[in-house]
Simulated assay, not measured.
Amino acid sequence: MTSGLSTHLFETQIGWIGIAWSDAGLARLQLPERDRAATLRRLLATLPRHGNEAVQAVDTLPQEIAEIVAAITRYAAGEAVDLSRIPVDLAGVDEFRLAIYDAARKLGFGEVVTYGELATRAGHPGMARETGQALGSNPVPLVVPCHRILAASGKIGGFSAPGGSATKERLLAMEGVRVGPPPPAQASFGF
């Protein structure tokens, strides 16, 4: 991987996705906004700062990053892809969130649990609300599959990515999971 923090945007069947990475791994994954420019703006606004190192946009990707892009692109096309082995840079994330993210990464394609069940799996029973808050600040959605976590009632629950719960429902539908009524015909991005 490269030194410092690098970014790259790529087009998928669900829209433009942005990523940022460091030597340690993927630091951010930005789900599609309405267009490429909006995705880039949101990605840059949410990047962690690595000291005085500049953020650089990269067009020619290192092999390991190209493989990550290819896997995410296949996932966005509806392929059952395991993203759990993608290295992540979660520097600055507290121990509770690390435990929640680790438990979420163990969920397979199309597997869903409730916030309470995920909290228990992460070693923090009774902390469903805090689990939802941790997932709301997830820096690498899809890689940490926060869309696979449902409310206690089995309903969709919240989702902090662009498009909110409609996006979450569409991601789950791509994985063969149906929750509640179908999403509305118009979503914030085109899939």
Results as ranks from 00 to 15, higher is better:
4 G>E: 09
5 L>N: 00
6 S>R: 15
6 S>M: 06
7 T>W: 01
7 T>P: 03
8 H>E: 02
8 H>S: 03
12 T>R: 01
14 I>N: 07
15 G>Y: 02
16 W>P: 07
16 W>F: 08
16 W>T: 14
18 G>L: 00
20 A>E: 02
25 G>L: 03
25 G>T: 03
26 L>M: 13
32 P>N: 02
35 D>A: 02
36 R>S: 09
37 A>C: 01
38 A>F: 00
42 R>P: 00
43 L>F: 00
46 T>D: 15
46 T>K: 11
47 L>A: 03
48 P>V: 09
48 P>Y: 01
48 P>D: 10
49 R>D: 06
51 G>L: 04
52 N>Q: 13
55 V>M: 00
55 V>K: 00
60 T>W: 05
62 P>C: 07
62 P>T: 10
63 Q>T: 12
68 I>K: 06
70 A>I: 01
71 A>I: 04
71 A>V: 05
72 I>P: 12
75 Y>C: 06
76 A>M: 12
78 G>H: 10
78 G>Y: 10
79 E>C: 08
84 S>N: 07
85 R>I: 00
86 I>E: 08
86 I>N: 13
89 D>Y: 03
92 G>R: 02
94 D>C: 05
96 F>L: 08
96 F>T: 06
96 F>S: 05
98 L>G: 07
100 I>M: 13
104 A>Q: 11
107 L>V: 09
108 G>S: 11
109 F>W: 15
110 G>A: 15
113 V>A: 12
113 V>M: 08
113 V>D: 07
114 T>S: 14
115 Y>H: 14
117 E>C: 04
118 L>C: 10
120 T>H: 10
121 R>I: 05
123 G>K: 05
126 G>E: 11
126 G>P: 10
130 E>R: 15
134 A>P: 08
135 L>K: 08
138 N>G: 09
139 P>Y: 05
139 P>D: 05
140 V>D: 06
141 P>M: 07
142 L>Y: 11
146 C>M: 12
146 C>K: 14
149 I>F: 08
149 I>Q: 09
150 L>T: 06
153 S>W: 01
154 G>L: 04
157 G>S: 08
157 G>T: 06
159 F>D: 07
160 S>I: 03
161 A>R: 13
161 A>I: 03
161 A>Y: 02
163 G>W: 06
164 G>T: 04
165 S>G: 04
166 A>L: 07
168 K>L: 11
170 R>M: 15
170 R>A: 15
171 L>H: 12
171 L>P: 09
172 L>M: 11
173 A>I: 14
177 V>N: 11
181 P>R: 12
181 P>T: 07
182 P>K: 11
183 P>A: 14
185 A>L: 14
187 A>R: 15
187 A>Y: 08
191 F>I: 05
